[in-house]
Structure formats: C-alpha cells, structure tokens
Write a protein that binds this DNA or RNA. Sequence first.
DNA 1: TATGAATGAGTCTTCATTCAT
DNA 2: AATGAATGAAGACTCATTCAT
Lengths: 193, 193, 193, 193
Amino acid sequence: MTSRKQEKFEMILDAAEKVIAENGFHGSQVSKIAKEAGVADGTIYLYFKKKEDILISLFEDRLGKLVALFNASIEESSTAAEALRKVCEIHFTQLEQNVNLAYVTQIELRQSSLELRKAIGLSVKPYIQLIENILIRGIAEKSFRADLDTKLTRHLLFGAMDEVVTSWLISGRKYSLSAQVDKTVDFFLRGLK
Amino acid sequence: MTSRKQEKFEMILDAAEKVIAENGFHGSQVSKIAKEAGVADGTIYLYFKKKEDILISLFEDRLGKLVALFNASIEESSTAAEALRKVCEIHFTQLEQNVNLAYVTQIELRQSSLELRKAIGLSVKPYIQLIENILIRGIAEKSFRADLDTKLTRHLLFGAMDEVVTSWLISGRKYSLSAQVDKTVDFFLRGLK
Amino acid sequence: MTSRKQEKFEMILDAAEKVIAENGFHGSQVSKIAKEAGVADGTIYLYFKKKEDILISLFEDRLGKLVALFNASIEESSTAAEALRKVCEIHFTQLEQNVNLAYVTQIELRQSSLELRKAIGLSVKPYIQLIENILIRGIAEKSFRADLDTKLTRHLLFGAMDEVVTSWLISGRKYSLSAQVDKTVDFFLRGLK
Amino acid sequence: MTSRKQEKFEMILDAAEKVIAENGFHGSQVSKIAKEAGVADGTIYLYFKKKEDILISLFEDRLGKLVALFNASIEESSTAAEALRKVCEIHFTQLEQNVNLAYVTQIELRQSSLELRKAIGLSVKPYIQLIENILIRGIAEKSFRADLDTKLTRHLLFGAMDEVVTSWLISGRKYSLSAQVDKTVDFFLRGLK
DNA sequence: TATGAATGAGTCTTCATTCAT
DNA sequence: AATGAATGAAGACTCATTCAT
C-alpha cells in the first residue's frame, strides 16, 4: 500500500520535472502534469494538497538526493579542501548530466511565488549548512584562515557556484560545466587559505 | 512636453517599484500600480505597451543608474583592486539603502516569465562586463593572476555578491549588508592575486 | 456519456439563441449565455473553444436542420416548380414560427466579424446549392428556360427570399410572412419559364 | 465658414470609407479615421456626436448620391422596363467601379449594431421606394401585371440585386458584375409582365 | 482509490469620449 | 476651432480545486 502510494507519488514528481522542463513554469498546468503521469487531475490531489506542494516536494526530493551524494563524498574526503572540491564537482556534474533538473532548479522554480521560494529556501539550507561545515572543518584543520566569517563565506561560495550554473544554462550550454570545477575551486581555496 | 511625459513615466516606475515591493510580483495588478501613481488604468498603456514593459523599464532604469555610479567610481580608482572594492561597496550600499529596489531586483523580478528574464538579462550584462573589465585591468596591472579565466571569474564574483544580498534580504535584514564589503572583497582579492 | 455531453451542448445553443435574440449580438456576454443555460462560465469552454464557436455551431445546427427539412420535401416533389414552392414555403414558415431564430439569422449573426461570416457562409452554401439543383432539374424537365444562368439565378432567388424575411422582421412582423409564399413563387416561376 | 466645415466633414467621410474598406469594421477605430483624415481625434467630435454618426452619415451621403443618379436616369427613361434596367445597371456599375464603397456597404456596415442598422435602413428606404415607383409606373403603363404586390415585389427585386453584389464580392470579384445586368433584368421583367 | 466534469474567481487591455489648453 | 493626453468601463478566457460517482 504505502510502497504503492510512494510509487505513484514519485511518478507525479517525475512527470512534474519533465513537464516543467519542457513547458516552463507558467506552461505547467496541473492537468498537463496529471496527463504526463498517467493519472486523472483529481488524483493529484490525493497525493498533494496544493499544486505548490508538488513543486516543493520535487525540490526537496531532488536536492535531498544531491545532499546525500555530498555527504557520502565528504566522508571519504581526508581534507576540507578535498571535500570542497568534491562538493563543487558533484554540484556541476550532476546538473550537467541532468539538464531537465538544471532547468527546473535554476530557471523555472525561481519564477514561483515568495511563499514557494521560502519553502525551496528551506531545502537549500542543508546544502548551505554543509558548505559551512566544510569551512569550519578547514579552520580546525588550520588549512583555512581562522578569521573567516563562515556565515558570510558559505553564501559567497554557494552564490558563485549557482551563478556559474545559471550562466552556463542561459548561454545554451555551449561549453563543459564540469570543466569549470578546477578553476572555480582554485579560486575558492586561494580565498580561503 | 517631453519632460512632462518623462515625469509621468517615472511616476509610474516609482509606483511600480513600491507596489511590487509591498505586494509581490503576483499581487501587483496594473490597476494597483495605476492607483499608486495617481493615474487611470488606461494611462499606463500610453507609456507602456504591456504590463511586462513596466518591469523591464523599471529594471533598466534602476540598473542603468547603478552602472552609471559604478563607472564614475571606477574612473576615480587608481587600481583594479580599489575599483573592485568600489563596485562591491556600491552594490551592497545602494541595495541596503533602497530596500524596495532590493526586493524587486532580488526577489520579485526573478519570478517573471522567461521572456522578461531575458530582457532583464540584457540589463545585467553591462554590469557583468564591467566586472570583467576590472579583472582584465588587474591582470594588466599585474596585481591579478595572469592565468585567471575572466569569463568564469566574473560570474563567480557576481554570483557571490548577488547571493549575499539575497540571503541578507531573506534573513529579514538582521545585520548590516555594507558591513560585509570588507570581508567579501578580501575573499575576492585573495582569490584573484 | 456522449448523449449527456450532447445534451448540454444543445442546452448552451438554445440558451445562446434566446439570449442573442433578446439582447442582440453585442449584448450577449458569455456570462449571460452561461447563466441562461444554467452552467458556470467556464463550462462553456468545455464545449466551445471560443465565444465565436458558439455562434458558428448555432448557425450550423439550425441551418442544418432546415436543409434536412428541404431535402425531405424536395424528394417528395414531383416537379422542380413544386420543389421550389416547397423551399420557399419552408423558408418562410420556419422563420415565421421561430422568431428568435429569425432574429439571430437575419439580424444578429450578420453583425459578426469577417471570420465568423465566412464560417456562416459555409453553412449557407449547401442551401444555395440546393436551389441551384432545383434550377438544373427544372431545365432538364424543360419546365425552366434552357438559357438560365443557374449560378446567377440561385443568388437572385436566395437574395429575394432573404430580403423579404428581413424586411418582414424589421417592419415589426405586422403581416403574415407565409402569406407571401404564393406571390413570391409566382414571381419566380414567371422569371424561370 | 460653412463651406470650410463642409469640406472637413467630407474629408472625414472619405477617410472613414477608406479606413473601413482597408481595416474592416472592427479594425476602424476613431483614432485611425482621424489620422487618415489628418485631424486630431477630438476634432472628429466637433463634426460628429458619436462614432456611429460617422457611419450613418457615410451611408446617407453615398446612397444619397446613388439615388440622385437613379432619379436622373429614370426621368430619361421612356418606359418602366427601361427605368428598371437603368436602376440595375447603375446599381451594379457603381459598386463595381467603387470597390471600397462596395465593401463598406455590403460587408462592413452590416456588422454594426441594431441601432445603426436601423439608421442605415432609413437610407435604403428611398431606394426601395424608388423601385416601387417604377413598379407602379409599369402597372399604369400596362407593361407590368396589374395583380403585382408592389410592396412585396420591391423587396424581391432589391434583395435579388443586393445578394448578387454580395456574392460577387465574396467570390473575390472573379467575374464582371455589370455583365450580370442583362440576365438579371431579363429575369425581373419576365416575372413582372 | 480513482475519476474528470464542473466550477467561478480573477485581470489585462482596448478604445470611444472628454476637456484643459 | 483644434488638439491629443487622459479617462475608465467592460468582458473573454484560464486553470487550480472540488465532489458526485
């Protein structure tokens, strides 16, 4: 039962991702998502209370999976610098390999209401926190400056990576995103040390 | 005549800025903007072809003024490093002093259609270019690394500053934004040298 | 299912006929038609793509039924002259008995856009053709002149009948329309023989 | 003064005729007519009380000129049959030579409100009356049947000619309209004698 | 659980008309 | 007489959500 429910829940999320990537945020009506998912419009409301909840769940689910990837990699990393490199690598590589997801997160979901954006912000928070943890670890390791403002710097790093992904998308993906990892991390580490 | 027309044009832009900041993008009906500007609904359409054009003009106008400020300051700067500091200072200070504008640029205008975002992107481009010019100047001055990828780095810098402003806003402006300039520029310069 | 859909489709057409006859073309808002039909405004758009489509469907439906009547009668007619009399009789009698329909076809629907009028023209064509077929039959029977220009004459006959109906309506229906059949057909037959 | 006023009055009528023929009834805004006439929008309202009045005046003026032509020709005619031929000839020839006028009278002006159409009907009445007078004259001359219902027949004749013009226009004017005069009048005269 | 027909609130835009200059 | 900037009423259409089956 629950697994069956879970299954349909994910079918709807997959459908939403595809529909939004193909039609844009404003072209993604509930009826279109329902059709893509192979269910009736009303069925959507057995799994989600409001349309917005689909989008929030979508973002939570996808970002949750990324954060899990991050955590696994970080544990394997012997230094904070290595962990930071891993984070940037996963960030760029995953979005490069999943263009639909990239469009949805970088372009489409940002067109939503303030309320939705706040909910999305909650999903991003663990990621921002994860970056800060690496900074704290680096300071403890004495590989990063002790006078770093970790609250500020975590935003500098996230914002920088985020913008690089967005500009890569808007440019039409004319170059390799993952090829930007080394130069990006290099810039970060010089700033941190 | 023209000045009178220009005057009303700006009255509408001011009204739009205020209404959007107060009600959010989706709560800003044309009728509300007209009322705030003290004109009839139809009058809006003597100055703007479509509702979207109000937003595009608003962004162009405000960002244009900022870029003018940037240009003036940069000319006075004797070094690229100093110019970069000026840019960050103006970026943070102006938005801190004009919270309505900050809300509109960081939160509301990003909720718009792809078409509008493209138009906005055109307004941002000169700013991104201005940052790159500083980088090029720094390399020429030999104060920045010669192996910098200026195309990538301009996005790293812009994205970092942009995210700092947004997180400051979302946090409820609980701390001083301009107080972040030194640490931000310090991080940048270490990465650039 | 389909019959239920068909049922509502016709309820809307009936409502549209009544509303247009009572309020005129320009006074017939979608909301008024919906109210008369006892459905919500949005329901209209489950059955018709645009407002104009209601009018086209209305015309097609009503004229289609008339043409069916014509065809049945003509088959029973032993001569072309008799068939022509039947056509005129049905034309006048039907519109006299259904004043709402008469108003809609003679007055209101002619106020529509060129696009709509073209669609309506397509519905009238079978009727014009039917008249021409009678002319051809009459020539074959040698009861009508062999030198008749059937393409021209079908318009002369249709236009004459059409104008008689319109002037009867505009006059305020102060006399019997069906009482004009004999004299009208008499005039026609003299011209045709 | 008055002649100067008259002059501008006619400039506006000419402009309206051209604009309606080119843009259709619904595409003919007051501002467009004003521009074509070379006056300001407000100036229109010094000569016409409402937009509708432009159209009514246009129809009155043009049809008035036609009726004058008819009257002149009829006086020259020695028989009612000849007069009827003249009428049909002028009707077809004038509209064939003035396609703009033909479009405006046959297609565009019929898309107007009931009120306007009634006003236009008043302009048509003298023409209908003129046709009836010919019929009466023919009966007096004993060249037409004494049992003719002149009230009915005048509509049969007008409607027939009107429809022939309209179908010629809608067909794209692929054939000569004036070439239809002989056959049309022939049909009429057979019906009348 | 699932369906999908029905609902109805909500808004941009046009354009005839006015009136201060 | 002439201007043209300003007015503001009016309406088609969409789509998230519900509920009878």
